[in-house]
Nucleic acid binder design. Structure first.
Lengths: 350, 350
DNA sequence: GTGATTTCCGTTTACGTTAACGGAAATTTA
DNA sequence: TAAATTTCCGTTAACGTAAACGGAAATCAC
């Protein structure tokens, strides 16, 4: 900066002002300084910058509440990992939880988050309309928003900083290939879904289901996909669902679930000693990984949800502290295929 | 630091001395300071540390020379990516190349690297004995060494900082499963290997081959694996090798290669319009990815070589600048299964 | 043309740590 | 016991940037 200042014939303070645009600088000197910066290739020293920056930032995270071993724990884990980095950059993270099954709790979480006067928001916007209301509070304050897991369809690029999601449709398509490509004779498969009562089905189910059916239509026109509902917390009832279905349809040997609860099916297979069926499931939950190792789940499709969460936080931190935005707004994670042979090397750590 | 100093009744300079142990401190005060640090939870500010640290470090990298699109370019890419981070921490990287096919060039690269008086070494130790000689020069200078890709068997944990490798045996085992599990009737498969003349076959070939054969022995005792040699730079000759082999053995429908040159086989398949064979190949080279998309390669096994390289450099940087070592010395990358449905989401970027 | 604003920019301090310097205390040597 | 070492530790000047402060120049109102 000293060199730049000398060559441009201004003070080092002015150089700072144009390099990071705060404060007022006349257009003439700004251009002169910019030219010198470019000429001698000045790059700001990020460590000095952070050191001298007295400001502290806070980010609020709005995600569903979860129990141990559930899908949202992966997201939470990714956020916690990013928090370590964030703290070194004077960024504090506060998490607000809501229930996936109660829109009012979502509204409440949003209200509380807004009251915390955050400098940035990371949100899993399960309820779209309520999200819109939240945005109408947040947007006027020019607070950057990052979406994770899903994104409201009304979100225009200028209204959010980034979206970290998963290629759901494609992963459903892939699931079909993994499940059926080895058995050209199969004419029927079944998917099990979590009961959501009156609530609209969630995005990940719909998109994956859609991708799966697209594969069938394209590659296996003779094959149909049944669908049955199971219950996350009612073990006995699920047993009956499975028993009944397979009693009626003993010829069905291919099972998929677009939820993260594949282990529920695997447990039933274990219980009944089922060995002639293949099962494709989603998400890197501990119990799914166990079932994969024990051979009940044939393939697990993982989308590094934890990593997406980490990167989502990082995007906010970069925006706030380093003032640089992601080049692409919509970032999709990879689709990882796991089986019993590579699972041991698939670690959540970085 | 000021708080710690005050509470411990010493100067801030002394706190620095015990926190980062340089300089001499009496055992008594060291313990006192350490206790206070622990008590009030003092964490050093890395930015201030780097800013005030005037020292600059240099790391030498010793890897094979490569042409565009070859395996070692992945490693190189990972190193270049890490370099960006490294530069911000005052660490400079110099690369020394050798020929995979000439041990003398390896020796020369080692000599030149040693002469550069580096603060750290990252090496792909293809020639084990020559590596031993290099170590006898480097070790007395207490220069930390990180291995990548392979590790000499004589390397004792205390003699190196870390090793970043790939689970070769397991990936060979997995390759066999991907290739054969869908076809229980297969009794024969073939692997193609790069000609290395008089040289000993390289580690990755040997280990993957071994893993593959272990799968056969265990799961498919009736199935044998043929092996044929191909030539990286002799397109016409390879055509003949393939033509001849499959003329003689038309029933063989499963092909694997443990090298990174799967695309050579794919090209032949394309040329001859072969559609009834499956091909499993390794490594995320551009040409392999093309062949995967075009359907010639059925499955590609990728081990994020680029990422391993990035982490290897990072390990050295962390050791030098932050004075913290990796908790585990031997770090293996994940085994990623790619097919035409998930390849588009498998990005080398981070 | 005077006074009041506004715009622009130079000066200065602080951020938390490192490391050179040198003085005091402890230890050894003669 | 005095001198010579050695050990230990306090002081201080960087490191590169951000931002508060305030003064000078330019612009405006009347």
């Amino acid at each position: 900066m000293e060199d730049v200042a000398r060559l441009a014939g201004v003070s080092i303070g002015t150089v700072g002002r144009v390099a990071h645009n705060h404060g007022e600088v006349s257009e003439k000197t700004r251009r002169k300084v910019l030219r010198i910066i470019d000429e001698i290739g000045y790059k700001p020293n990020i460590h000095a910058s952070i050191l001298s920056q007295k400001r502290h930032y806070s980010i609020v995270v709005i995600i569903p509440y979860f129990q141990k071993g559930e899908y949202w724990e992966l997201i939470y884990g990714g956020i916690m990992k990013a928090e370590q980095e964030a703290q070194k950059l004077n960024v504090q993270i506060k998490v607000f939880y809501y229930s996936q099954f109660e829109i009012e709790s979502f509204r409440a979480a949003c209200r509380n988050a807004a009251e915390a006067k955050p400098n940035g928001v990371l949100i899993a916007p399960i309820y779209k309309e309520a999200t819109r209301d939240f945005l109408s509070v947040i947007s006027p304050l020019a607070i950057p928003v990052v979406y994770i897991d899903s994104k409201p369809e009304f979100a225009a690029p200028k209204d959010y900083l980034a979206y970290f999601g998963m290629p759901l449709y494609e992963s459903g398509y892939l699931a079909a290939d993994l499940l059926l490509s080895a058995d050209p004779a199969a004419t029927r498969a079944v998917s099990f879904t979590i009961d959501r009562g009156e609530l609209t089905p969630n995005d990940s189910f719909v998109s994956r289901d859609c991708g799966f059916r697209a594969y069938l239509a394209e590659m296996r026109p003779g094959c149909v996909l049944d669908n049955r509902v199971i219950y996350p917390y009612d073990f006995m009832r699920n047993i009956k669902v499975f028993d009944d279905y397979f009693a009626e349809n003993p010829e069905v040997r291919h099972i998929v679930t677009f939820t993260s609860r594949g282990h529920l099916i695997a447990d039933w297979m274990e219980l009944r000693g089922v060995k002639d069926k293949t099962l494709v499931a989603f998400d890197m939950l501990g119990r799914n990984m166990e079932s994969l190792k024990s051979g009940m789940i044939t393939n697990l499709i993982a989308e590094r949800t934890d990593k997406a969460a980490t990167r989502a936080v990082k995007a906010l931190v970069d925006h706030l502290v380093l003032r640089q935005d992601p080049p692409i707004k919509d970032i999709y994670s990879s689709i990882d295929i796991l089986n019993r042979y590579n699972i041991d090397y698939y670690l959540p750590v970085e």
